[in-house]
């Protein structure tokens, strides 16, 4: 399967993110950086995650260890939210409610 990649240096320059920050994220296992023909590249599938981690790091002054802990906790929150959604959806089988139409997929 093909993966779209962005050259790390280019990304850092455009988005005003320090390469050392991405290296820290990589070391902590929060992101994966590929090396293609000697060039360090970031898969585009990780852009949303990188942007989120950058907001935590730069805007909220949370260090990488904190981001790592948050990542794990948010994973658990997501699972719990999924469980609630699943249970709510089962409840809908028995209840009627207002809804939006969504027929196409």
């Amino acid at each position: 399967m093909e993966t779209d990649l962005i050259i790390l240096e280019e990304y850092c320059r455009i988005c005003h993110v320090e390469p050392s920050f991405l290296s820290m994220l990589e070391k902590s296992g929060l992101i994966e950086i590929d090396t293609v023909e000697g060039e360090r590249c970031l898969p585009t599938s990780q852009l949303n995650d990188v942007e989120r981690y950058a907001r935590m790091y730069y805007d909220l002054s949370i260090n990488v260890e904190g981001i790592e802990a948050i990542h794990h906790l948010l994973g658990r929150v997501e699972l719990l939210q999924e469980e609630i959604k699943r249970l709510k959806n089962r409840l809908h089988l028995y209840e009627s409610d207002r809804f939006d139409e969504m027929d196409e997929f």
């Binding site: 959604k85 959806n89 809908h92 409610d97 139409e101 969504m102 027929d103």
Partner: peptide, 13 residues
């Protein structure tokens, strides 16, 4: 069927 996603109810076929 109706599903709730992010507080929004969607009816899907």
């Amino acid at each position: 069927q109706i599903i709730t996603v992010n507080g929004r109810n969607l009816r899907i076929t």
